[in-house]
Amino acid sequence: MLTKKWFLTDGIAWVVKLVHQSPELEKVVADLVNNVNAVRVNTRIKQGFKAAHDSVRSAKEVPGHDEGAEDALNVAIKAFDDFHISVPGKIASLVDKPLSVIKQRSELPIVKEDYES
């Protein structure tokens, strides 16, 4: 009963915190955001180029234009689609441990090394 109570009151919050702070999630989200922004910049540069066509020969000449932005975004989208997080496996490794060990483990700071072991 104590194990169930702890899991429902504190354990689930711990799992969510682990997932939220995981380096794996941080990387795929950052890659998506950065590449979406690069594609938006390219779109705006192309729109600006069309408007100022007489003064610039190519949108590629405009500072900030990233020719590989769309390819990089596609790679980031694929990485997000293939995303795998190690948190469930880390938590599953505690299944045979006593509640005192699980509680102690859940109170440790969440650091990158936690995911590399």
Results as ranks from 00 to 15, higher is better:
M1P: 02
L2R: 14
L2W: 15
T3Y: 10
K4N: 07
K4S: 09
K5M: 03
K5S: 07
W6C: 02
W6I: 04
F7G: 10
L8H: 11
L8K: 15
T9L: 12
T9D: 10
D10V: 13
A13M: 11
A13L: 13
V15K: 13
V16H: 05
V16E: 03
K17C: 04
L18P: 11
V19I: 05
H20Y: 05
Q21L: 13
Q21W: 12
S22C: 00
S22M: 02
P23N: 02
P23Q: 03
L25E: 00
L25K: 03
L25T: 03
A30Y: 04
D31E: 05
D31R: 05
L32R: 00
L32S: 03
L32T: 01
V33C: 03
V33K: 04
N34P: 05
N34H: 10
N35K: 01
V36G: 01
N37G: 09
N37A: 12
V39Y: 01
R40F: 12
R40M: 12
V41R: 09
N42M: 02
T43S: 15
R44V: 09
I45L: 07
K46L: 07
Q47N: 15
F49R: 09
K50H: 12
A51I: 08
A52W: 03
H53T: 09
D54I: 06
V56H: 08
V56F: 09
V56G: 07
R57S: 08
S58L: 03
K60P: 12
E61F: 04
P63F: 03
G64F: 04
H65S: 13
D66R: 13
E67N: 11
E67P: 09
G68K: 09
G68R: 06
G68E: 14
A69K: 10
A69I: 09
E70P: 04
D71E: 10
D71A: 15
D71F: 05
A72I: 09
A72K: 11
V75M: 05
V75L: 08
A76N: 00
I77L: 12
K78L: 08
K78A: 10
K78Q: 06
K78V: 09
F80M: 07
F80W: 13
D82S: 03
D82M: 00
F83T: 00
F83W: 02
F83D: 01
H84I: 01
I85A: 00
V87C: 02
V87P: 06
G89W: 00
G89K: 05
K90F: 08
K90N: 08
I91D: 02
L94T: 05
L94R: 12
D96H: 15
K97D: 15
P98E: 15
P98N: 15
S100L: 14
S100G: 12
S100P: 01
V101L: 13
I102S: 07
I102V: 14
I102C: 13
Q104M: 11
R105T: 10
R105F: 15
E107C: 11
L108Y: 04
L108V: 10
P109S: 08
P109K: 10
I110R: 02
I110D: 01
K112L: 01
K112E: 00
E113N: 10
E113M: 05
E116V: 12
